[in-house]
């Protein structure tokens, strides 16, 4: 890090700026700023396109519980609820698995297995979401209905969360699909966090007589917790905005649900289901306002993740 800094400083000092350099600098500055401009532009245009709906509903849009194209009443609450529940479910199922993968890859795996395994886990991230959706419809959905959901119900059926008739196209299936989809993100970033933990941490724990698990738990996981947290938030960011796979598995019901075995709808899946035929200005406006809500939520989640990961990087640097 330091070497690179000084080297860059020296190059700057010594080289005279040629016209080509200046042009390149100008161009790259322009492109970098254009991205920011684009984000602002998208927000403004979405806001304008949603104007009719924003004027009609204002903040009440967020708490409205009905989406009725016939009587032209639109509210976002069931979709915000659906998004929160599926994302929470995805984190609940995905984080422990991802963490297990990360720990195995950074602490336990033999060297020859590490690279192929890392590669395969990251390959999961490259599978297009519509493929996950198809798999969800034809393989996971029926499997959930026949085996997994009745199984869960047999154990936890006394909870209201797991009551009703398992149908396989429900919030639970969508949550499981999302969990699988966010595993590569979370495991890759938390593996980086674990690898950044200096060996002195491990050696110190071992020298105090800690077992391997105690070393990992006290020496490594605690040290890397900010990074792991950031990884989970990045996964959450993906889960919140995931559209295709959720639309294909969640059952598309625009209402609140009490049980995970009922169909629901998220913000993204509602937009995907309805935009094609949405009647302007009010219904289309309401859909775009949904989009704005989703964008804001994603923005906050990403900002939060940035802050957490940034903190973890600084901690890592300080330890060197």
């Amino acid at each position: 890090m330091h070497v690179f800094e000084t080297l860059r400083g020296r190059t700057r000092l010594r080289l005279r700026a040629t016209p080509g350099d200046l042009a390149f600098e100008g161009l790259s500055t322009f492109i970098a700023l254009a991205v920011v401009g684009l984000l602002v532009l998208i927000t403004v245009i979405l806001y304008l396109a949603a104007a009719e709906s924003i004027r009609t509903y204002g903040l009440g849009f967020l708490s409205g519980s009905v989406w009725d194209s016939v009587s032209q009443r639109f509210g976002a609450a069931p979709f915000i609820y659906g998004m929160l529940v599926t994302s929470a479910l995805a984190l609940l199922l995905g984080v422990p698995v991802s963490l297990g993968i990360a720990i195995f890859l950074s602490e336990l795996s033999p060297a020859w297995l590490r690279i192929p395994l890392t590669f395969i886990v990251e390959l999961l991230a490259a599978v297009p979401s519509v493929v996950y959706g198809l798999w969800g419809i034809f393989i996971l959905g029926p499997a959930m209905r026949v085996y997994i959901e009745p199984g869960v119900q047999a154990v936890l059926g006394f909870l209201p969360l797991f009551q009703g008739h398992p149908i396989g196209s429900d919030v639970f299936t969508a949550g499981v699909i999302l969990a699988i989809m966010i595993i590569p993100t979370i495991s890759a970033v938390s593996r980086e966090a674990l690898l950044a933990v200096p060996d002195s941490q491990r050696e110190a724990a071992l020298s105090l007589g800690a077992t391997r698990w105690e070393t990992t738990r006290l020496g490594v996981l605690r040290y890397a917790r900010a990074g792991i947290f950031g990884a989970a938030i990045l996964g959450l960011g993906r889960a919140v905005g995931e559209t295709m796979a959720v639309t294909m598995t969640i059952g598309n019901r625009a209402a609140f649900f009490g049980s995970l075995f009922e169909p629901g709808q998220t913000i993204a899946s509602q937009i995907a289901s309805r935009w094609l035929d949405a009647v302007p200005p009010l219904e289309l406006g309401a859909l775009i306002q949904l989009g704005l809500v989703l964008m804001l939520v994603s923005l906050f989640i990403n900002l939060f993740a940035r802050l957490m990961v940034g903190r973890f990087l600084r901690v890592g640097e300080g330890a060197e």
């Binding site: 016939v70 149908i167 019901r253 035929d277």
Partner: peptide
């Protein structure tokens, strides 16, 4: 409850 997209009382939706 008559329209191209309605607020269905029950059921699961598919595209």
């Amino acid at each position: 409850l008559v329209g191209k997209a309605i607020n269905w009382p029950v059921g699961i939706g598919a595209q």
